[in-house]
Amino acid sequence: MKMRLNQEKCIGCYACYVACIAEHNPPEAEDAYSYRTIKTSVKDGLQKKVCVGCIQCGACMKACPSGAIYREEEYDIVLVDQEKCIGCRTCESVCPNQAIRYNAHGKMEKCDGCIERLRQGREPACVRVCCAKALTIE
């Protein structure tokens, strides 16, 4: 699976950002987070905010010295094995979208492509809510 963001189509509504928060955090969470990152995009002198996320490119996997980051075969999604992660943050430095983060447990975590939703035959939460169709999966 490859997640694609067409920044031209993105309208900066943050629906994908909020959907990610809702999917991966309980409603009562005080430290809720999104795996998507808000960035400023500039084209032809115009600025707009876009929500970029993991594109499942595997750069983090290639850089991981402990082998904690791997590609799940069935859905072709890059995941982090928390048991193997040594928290060195090497993966963070190579991510083109800053879509991998250091968590409170000293481990790295990233978008899992909403793998549980995929297993149920559903789209990832961010793709599902993108009204501009700027987010797609291939």
Rank of each mutant, 00 (worst) to 15 (best):
M1L: 08
R4E: 13
Q7G: 02
K9H: 12
I11G: 11
G12H: 12
A22Q: 03
A22V: 07
A22P: 00
P27D: 10
P27L: 04
E28I: 05
E30D: 15
E30L: 15
D31G: 03
A32N: 02
Y33E: 07
S34E: 03
R36H: 14
R36I: 00
I38M: 00
I38R: 04
K39F: 00
K39L: 04
T40I: 12
T40L: 08
S41R: 06
V42M: 06
V42T: 13
D44S: 14
D44M: 09
D44C: 01
G45M: 13
G45E: 11
Q47E: 14
K48M: 06
K48P: 02
K49Q: 12
V52P: 00
G53W: 06
G53P: 03
I55Y: 15
Q56L: 05
C57W: 07
G58W: 01
K62C: 01
C64A: 09
S66D: 15
G67D: 06
A68F: 13
R71C: 12
Y75Q: 06
I77G: 09
Q82H: 11
Q82G: 09
C88E: 12
R89Y: 05
E92L: 15
E92I: 15
V94C: 03
C95W: 02
P96L: 05
P96C: 07
Q98H: 01
Q98A: 11
Y102P: 04
A104S: 15
H105I: 04
K107Q: 14
K107T: 10
M108D: 13
E109S: 10
G113P: 08
G113Y: 06
G113V: 04
C114Y: 04
C114R: 02
C114I: 01
C114T: 02
C114F: 05
C114G: 11
E116Y: 10
L118W: 07
Q120H: 08
E123L: 15
E123M: 14
A125Y: 04
V127R: 02
V127P: 01
V127N: 01
R128D: 10
R128A: 13
C130I: 08
C131R: 06
A132D: 08
L135A: 03
T136Y: 03
